[in-house]
Amino acid sequence: MISLAMILFASLIFTGVVVRTKSLASGRKGPGILQPLKDVLRLLRKGTVFSETTSFIFQIASSIYFVSVLMAILVVPFGQSKGLISFDGDFVFFAYVLALGKFFSIISAMDTGSSFEGMGASREALYSMLAEPAFFVLMGSFAMLTGHTSFHGIFTALHFSSHVSYALGVLATFVLIMVAMIENSRMPIDDPKTHLELTMIHEVMILDNSGFGLGLFTYAVNLKFAMYGAIIANFFIGDVPWYYAVLVFTAVQVLFAVIVGLLESFTARFRMAHNATFIFTLTSASLLIFFGVLLLMGKFI
């Protein structure tokens, strides 16, 4: 329960912090921290325009996407306390329920019959396919290290003891940040602020969404960021009382948001053709973690 509350709280300010960092980095004052949230609320109150090409798929897709992110959040624990849903292998459910949302966002883009949105859909499907193994191998490595197969079990049993384990933590954080960037279609994979449809992924898929549906899609991005932030925070919380945990959690979320802001300020988007190679590199990073774990456990000769 506490994890849900914390993630929801983080999701309210996350994008605001990102936007603030970006504007500060580019020498502007920038909007308030809560501005993205106000944008979402405004969208939720608006009426909707549907394309005449679309079918019921388009109408339900935004809701299903949103709910899939929400279900995934319910699985994420917070320090010592479990998520609302917790069972052995819950991170498989986590990944698959997110994939369900993605399935619907892709077909809703195809539903509009637009050439732009098809382009985004095609890219989203390809990139999320390439990112999938990285997450599973990453979780596999930690499952092996801790002997547990649920988020909660892994995070409570995870203790950083040696130099190698710190290196693993850093690598895992890197992989998770990058997975989050891919999932949310951010730099360096995709530039949400670009003005050319041909170079977008996520933004081009929701070109025809408006009103409530667009609000859900937009807020789901915030939720997803906060969710990955929570998973990263869990790596570092360890066995501490809840008030410290809340502090660590907030610090990690803010730091994550600042990193995202800085990444978006100072990196350029990859060429689309290079994205696939880059994403596959993540899998090798997670394989590196796996071999690191083997090394730690002395299974490696």
Binding site: L44, K46, G47, T48, V49, F50, S51, E52, T53, T54, Q59, I60, S62, S63, I64, F66, V67, T112, G113, S114, L207, D208, G211, F212, G213, L216
Partner: peptide
């Protein structure tokens, strides 16, 4: 969520337009 969406959609103006 779909129920809420449909409920809200009834109160709001709804337009049908060609794909952008």
């Amino acid at each position: 969520v779909i129920f809420i969406q449909q409920k809200l959609a009834k109160e709001k103006p709804l337009a049908i337009a060609p794909t952008w």
